[in-house]
Nucleic acid binder design. Structure first.
Length: 640
RNA sequence: GCCGAAAUAGCUCAGCUGGUAGAGCAACUGACUUGUAAUCAGUAGGUCUCGGGUUCGACUCCUGAUUUCGGCACCA
């Protein structure tokens, strides 16, 4: 007999070799029906996998997050089996469950086309109907290498496992896959699914290696759930900043201007200017000094910093004149280093915080360009903090909390905080391991002291140091970096930055690089998606639309109001077109203008306004003074 | 950059198996003069992304390029 302990601490004796399915059944038959797998001593177990020793278990039912993973993982196997039937030469990379479904990386022997997905999906349905048992087996590593000898990808995966590893396999009918599990028992349980996309994906994420074809799909426990998911995918398109940016006239991308070179339209630039002014004030209050530096610099400048060696491929082509070579500035740290050097610095001067609204150019790979999210010319408020070592922690924390406050004001949700560290594999990191360890250790201490939860990302650091990245999720489901605080012990060295300590000796300052709320371009894309284009009043390009009921009778009053609002520093527009009232109202609503004012006899007679707030049905009538007060309060408090 | 797909009027889209294009909205003109999501009528608008080819004839088929989209890689 073995002892099975449940999550609530209770335990019960079972025969050795009992399974999750049997345990669930012993509790109730209804529980058994909704069970899909179990966690046994921290490991994911199939329903029928024997449990041979005392164990803490948790039964996973269809409602649990893990159940979705199990189903989708099995769907990936089903996909592979179907591909193998249709393309017998097919070889397989990896096929995991992901956040919203699954994928499998496949080398089908031929180039798959999108229309093949239909055939593959049909085959999957057929295999599902065959109700093939999915069974687990284990074999020693050497045997597994022999078993998979025809699939070079699997061989490579197995070869990377330790010598003494027992390899687990899952077999369904004629198809066997290398896999840790767990799975869902039978192909009949993978009934509701849809293949969504065909894409390229480099083997092992390495662009120097072969490119496999990745098929994405999603599997659910019911038709309704699948339908709902597909509905969500549709609705996301409504939030897409590219669509909203066009509808609301925020920005324009035109090939004659150049790929990834966005133009800000009046509405977009208005929002950007509000953001710029806001951030400028925040930085001033936080003790930053603003500087301004040129958009072009010598190649030499970036050779000193090390950016030329690391990123020359991602810079715009060089310009040469009179024996000098120039580049369009891809970032601003070198300039700020030089500004630091304009004077002898004392330990009493530090920290020095330079901020700048910087336009920078990067020749991003064509395939990575995405609306305003990823562009080749971008403007951001960049900052470099020059600090003593004993000031690092406080300055990093202050910078971090300033970022957090800003993100909160913008009403954005943080997906997670990432600590980007170096790893041994990539060659880009500078080679002073001692400095690296010190910097990484300090970042970890800061995060621990502030009780900030974070995810470690090895190999994601900048070449000069570790960084704390604030990640947000876009409407389309991508995670992108919003803000960053980076610790840099390298560039001060390269630029030979010094300050005089209280010992009278020269010391090296440390630089903290800070990206505040990404670039204005990317921030705009995030905000558009966040607000679905309905900007809060303080950001809205047009805050008020004044609509006279009758052009003849109410035009003067409408004009008077509009001028009054503009004098009060509010962004108001007048709709004097010869159109029907309903038409103008619809137009104002479509443009998602926060305050829509319809003025007619009632308002003229009483010197009042009747407003309708965007997103609300009700109409409110107040005095003009009251309205101005109300809206100014809202702007001042940056209410979302 | 790589893999897959797409490109038709300012915008959103239709256009069957090849016979040189159509709708709605927007624009313009005129009429209507309006109290909370589209008034009516008319006019104009297109090298069907750009080259090359097949064909009597190409928006449609083939081919090359460009851009966009979905991914991958990259992201100082």
């Amino acid at each position: 007999m073995i002892k099975i302990t449940f999550p609530d601490g209770n335990n019960k004796e079972f025969e050795q070799g009992v399974s999750i399915e049997l345990i669930a059944g012993s509790i109730s038959s209804s529980l058994r029906k909704v069970s899909v797998a179990g966690i046994v001593n921290g490991e994911l177990y199939d329903l029928n996998r024997p449990i041979n020793e005392d164990a803490e278990i948790r039964i996973i039912t269809k409602k649990d997050r893990e159940a979705f993973e199990v189903l989708n993982h099995s769907a990936a196997h089903l996909l592979a089996q179907a591909v193998k039937r249709l393309f017998p030469d097919a070889k397989f990379g990896v096929g995991p469950a992901i956040r919203e479904g699954f994928y499998y990386d496949i080398d089908a022997g031929v180039q798959l086309r999108e229309e093949d997905l239909i055939k593959i999906e049909k085959m999957m349905k057929r295999i599902s109907q065959e109700q093939v048992q999915i069974t687990r087996s284990e074999m020693p590593r050497a045997e597994a290498l022999e078993f998979f000898k025809d699939d070079k990808y699997k061989v490579e995966l197995i070869s990377d496992l330790p010598e003494d590893e027992i390899i687990s396999l899952y077999t369904q009918g004629e198809f066997t896959d290398l896999c840790k599990g767990g799975h869902i028992g039978s192909t009949k349980n993978v009934r509701v699914f849809k293949l969504l996309a065909l894409a390229g994906a480099y083997w092992r994420g390495d662009s120097k290696r072969e490119q496999l074809q990745r098929i994405y799909g999603t599997a659910w426990y019911s038709e309704d759930a699948l339908k709902e998911h597909l509905q969500i995918l549709e609705e996301r398109k409504e939030r897409d900043h590219r669509k909203l940016g066009k509808e609301l006239k925020i920005f324009e991308l035109n090939n004659d201007a150049g790929q990834g070179l966005a133009m800000w339209l009046p509405n977009g630039y208005t929002v950007r200017k509000v953001l710029e002014d806001w951030v400028y004030k925040l930085e001033r209050k936080a003790g930053y000094q603003h500087v301004s530096t040129p958009m072009v610099g010598t190649k030499k400048l970036y050779e000193i910093s090390g950016h030329w060696a690391n990123y020359r491929e991602n810079m715009f082509p060089v310009m040469e004149r009179d024996g000098e070579t120039f580049v369009l500035r891809p970032m601003s740290c070198p300039h700020h280093m030089l500004i630091y050097k304009t004077d002898i610095r004392s330990y009493r001067d530090l920290p020095i915080r330079y901020a700048e609204i910087v336009t920078q150019h990067r020749y991003e790979a064509s395939g990575s360009l995405t609306g305003l999210e990823r562009v080749r010319a971008m403007t951001l408020t960049d900052a470099h903090l020059f600090v003593r070592k004993d000031q690092i922690k406080q300055e990093v924390k202050d910078a971090y909390y300033l970022i957090l406050a800003a993100i909160k004001t913008l009403g954005l949700e943080i997906e997670y905080i990432e600590l980007a560290l170096r790893d041994d594999k990539k060659g880009k990191f500078h080679d002073n391991i001692e400095l690296w360890n010190e910097a990484e250790q300090m970042m970890k201490e800061i995060l621990a002291e502030e009780k900030i939860e974070y995810t470690e990302m090895k190999g994601e650091a900048a070449f000069y140091g570790p960084k704390i990245d604030v990640q947000v999720r876009t409407a389309m489901g991508h995670v992108i970096t919003m803000s960053t605080v980076q610790l840099d012990f390298l560039l001060p060295d390269r630029f030979d930055l010094t300050y005089i300590g209280n010992d009278g000796e020269k010391h090296r300052p440390v630089v903290i690089h800070r990206g505040f709320v990404s670039t204005w371009e990317r921030l705009m894309s995030i905000l558009l998606e966040q607000y679905k284009g309905a900007f809060p009043t303080w950001l809205a390009p047009i805050q008020i639309k004044v609509i006279p009921v009758s052009l003849e009778v109410h035009a003067d009053y409408a004009k008077k109001l509009n001028s009054l609002f503009i004098d009060e520093d509010l962004r108001s527009e007048l709709d004097m077109r010869e159109e029907k009232l309903g038409y103008k109202i619809r137009d104002a609503q479509t443009l998602k203008i926060p305050y829509q004012l319809v003025v007619g006899d009632n308002e003229v007679d009483s010197n009042q306004v009747t407003y309708r707030k965007y997103g609300q049905k009700e109409q409110v009538t107040v005095s003009v003074e009251e309205f101005i007060l109300l809206i100014k309060q809202e702007v001042k408090n940056q209410i979302n």
